Computed example of a mutant assay.
Amino acid sequence: MRTLYARLRGGLLAALAPVVAAALTLGGLSAWVAAGAAGGPARISVTDGRVFLPYGSVAETAAFFRITNSGDSDDVLESVRSPRAVDVMLSRTVEREGANVESMRMVESATVPAGRRITMEPDGLDVMLRPKRALRLGAEVPFVLRFRHSGEVRVTAVVVRPGS
């Protein structure tokens, strides 16, 4: 009888150790989250929308935005659309190694790091589009930028002359 009691006691002690460890871990994680140390979601804002006025017989143009992530987590710009454009796509200007030549490359997405800002520019990341109708200087073009975690952000871009 005594050996049965000793075995049960030993088994209970062995089972108690992982339960206590799990409870301590859960308590520590709860305190970490409650203190705000676990971070927070991405907080995206999009400003300074511009669309270059196409010139000559060129139908395609580019749009540029300033995207700020004031949150604690990275987010990813996955797509852009506009009801005033036929085709809208993310692109990036890249320089070919050794060739001293730049070319445009379509990209699937763009990461917006936590606590950082990306500014779209003609020699970097931009939005290529083909407007449905001719654009006029000063006109406003609506866009919807879709982010992986923050969802859709609606913004308007103003038509400006290239270089302004």
Rank of each mutant, 00 (worst) to 15 (best):
A14E: 06
A15W: 12
A15S: 06
A17D: 07
P18K: 01
P18L: 06
P18R: 03
P18N: 02
V19L: 09
V19C: 07
V19G: 03
V19E: 01
V19Q: 01
V20S: 09
V20A: 15
V20W: 14
A21E: 05
A21W: 03
A23M: 12
A23T: 08
L24Q: 13
T25V: 14
T25N: 05
L26Q: 08
L26Y: 08
L26D: 10
G27S: 12
G27K: 11
G27W: 15
G27A: 10
G28A: 13
L29N: 01
L29D: 02
L29T: 02
S30Y: 15
S30A: 12
A31V: 08
A31N: 04
A31E: 06
W32T: 11
W32A: 03
V33I: 13
V33E: 08
A35S: 15
A35N: 09
G36N: 14
G39A: 03
G39D: 05
G39F: 01
G40H: 08
P41C: 07
A42Y: 08
R43N: 13
R43I: 00
R43G: 06
S45V: 00
S45C: 11
V46S: 10
V46N: 14
T47G: 07
D48M: 03
G49V: 14
G49N: 05
G49Y: 08
R50E: 15
R50H: 12
R50D: 07
F52W: 11
F52A: 13
F52P: 00
F52R: 11
L53K: 03
L53N: 04
L53H: 01
L53G: 08
P54H: 06
P54Q: 05
Y55I: 05
S57C: 03
A59F: 04
A59W: 00
E60C: 03
T61G: 02
A63V: 15
A63N: 07
F64V: 11
F64G: 02
F65Y: 09
F65C: 02
R66T: 12
R66A: 10
I67D: 00
T68N: 05
T68I: 10
N69V: 05
N69I: 03
N69D: 04
